[in-house]
Simulated scan of single mutants.
Amino acid sequence: MTTTIAKFAHLQIPLEDVVKATNNFADDKIIGRGGLGRVYKGQLQRSGELITISALRLDRKHVGGVVEFWTEVSMLSDLKHPNIVSIVGFCDDKHEKIIVTMYEAINGSLKEHLNSPNLTWAQRLKICVGVARALSYLHYDEGRGYGVIHLNVNSFTILLDENWEPKLSGFKVSIKQSLNRMDRVILSEPIGTIGYVDPEIEKSKGVTCKSDIYAFGMVLFEILCGRRAYIRDDANRLLAPLVMQHYENETLHDIVHPDIRNQISKGALRRYSKTAYSCLNKDRMQRPSMLTLIDELEKALEKALKFQLRREYFVRTLLCFFFLCQLLPIVLICLL
């Protein structure tokens, strides 16, 4: 029996349409495995237009999956932001529950590129800024009349489009809260992914918007160090204590991703790492707001772009000089 909530009826998509779009959930259409189940890529007809979609098919064995399914549908139906995934609709029919979003993860998730030598420091900062803007929208946008605590911010849920712009996803455990109570504790069990969970949850028995700040701080350090916040079989399984130790000992440069070390000035590294470290403050109230973080990261991006232009200009000048040096003997011979 269909359990469609009336509020979301306009978003409902017939099961046969999703089946057709994904070629009956063919294995070669699988593009990922989310917390709720497998994700399929497909082509769906909507309003006379053929669009590329991602279809998250709920695994029936997932405990609590129905609640998480409706939470994600509820959240995405209200959220409209350039750095948040866009919902197309959902299917709730014949024991199937499927969330359909626009296919925007052309470059996969951030997790897949943390260690990439091709992802420049400026590109990494651009991703940071985009995620910060998405979280600021969740925490403070007055147009909705309520704030959202995401509670699942990590490099898995940050998707990257064809221009490397981030798209925040993974709203299955998000919580709505009054805008004037975002700093108040909401009673909750520890929620999130290992390596990103706010350690204050256990102490306070709940979460606040500052729990998202902690998780975002871990993403900032992942981007800087080029590794995930949690690696099960690694000697330093958790990134948090490692970066905190190096930051406090002023040796953070030793664990910066080697391919971006020469792209960051010492001053820029100090400022960025101070910003990321402040997100991990044990005292939640001392963690910065998303508005403060956006300001810091936008300034860092501006400086990184200028630094990159200077380096490119220097390299071009050097190449021209080298070319002229090679050409000069030939010119002299011709003149003689």
Rank of each mutant, 00 (worst) to 15 (best):
G42S: 01
L305I: 15
R133Q: 14
E112L: 13
D17Q: 13
T120V: 01
H246W: 07
N180W: 11
L327S: 09
K7S: 15
H113C: 03
V207G: 03
G64I: 06
L179S: 12
G37L: 10
I231W: 02
Y146P: 00
I87G: 06
V18D: 09
L224G: 10
C320G: 09
I98R: 02
S178P: 10
S86V: 08
A105W: 04
G143I: 08
E189Y: 09
V129P: 03
L36I: 04
R228G: 02
E96Y: 06
L293P: 00
N115M: 12
L15S: 09
G170A: 08
C334L: 15
A6T: 13
F323Y: 07
L138W: 03
V148Y: 03
G267R: 09
A21S: 05
G195K: 00
N83P: 00
H253N: 08
F69M: 03
I53E: 11
P14G: 14
W70Y: 04
C325Y: 14
N107I: 02
R181P: 05
T22H: 07
N107R: 03
C334K: 11
V256H: 04
W70P: 07
L293Q: 07
S77H: 05
E49I: 13
P190Y: 09
L15C: 06
N107S: 06
A105R: 04
R60M: 14
F323L: 13
L328I: 12
I175Y: 07
K80M: 14
K282M: 15
Y230T: 02
Y272S: 05
D283E: 11
Q245G: 00
I330K: 11
I127W: 05
S136T: 00
L297P: 01
N83I: 00
G48W: 11
G89Q: 08
Y103W: 14
G217N: 11
L36S: 13
G48A: 14
R33C: 08
I13K: 01
W121P: 02
K172L: 10
T52G: 01
I30F: 07
P190M: 12
L110W: 00
D259V: 00
V219G: 08
A300W: 01
D254H: 09
L168I: 01
H10Q: 13
L76E: 09
S289C: 09
Q308K: 12
P288A: 15
Y277K: 03
R270N: 14
K111C: 11
E165W: 02
F25N: 06
T251Y: 06
L160V: 02
V73S: 08
I333N: 07
G267K: 12
L238S: 14
I213R: 03
K274M: 14
L15P: 01
V197F: 05
L305R: 08
L327D: 04
L327P: 02
S289Y: 15
I201M: 13
T193K: 06
M1S: 15
L56W: 08
R316D: 13
K61F: 12
D92P: 03
S136G: 11
G170M: 05
H150Q: 01
W121T: 04
D93A: 09
M285F: 09
L309F: 07
R184L: 10
P117E: 07
K203R: 13
T120E: 12
D234Q: 08
I5H: 11
M218F: 06
R133S: 10
Q123N: 08
E104A: 14
G64R: 02
L332W: 10
S155C: 11
E200D: 12
G130S: 07
K274S: 15
H81Y: 02
E49Q: 15
A215P: 03
R237A: 11
M1F: 12
K306M: 12
I127Y: 05
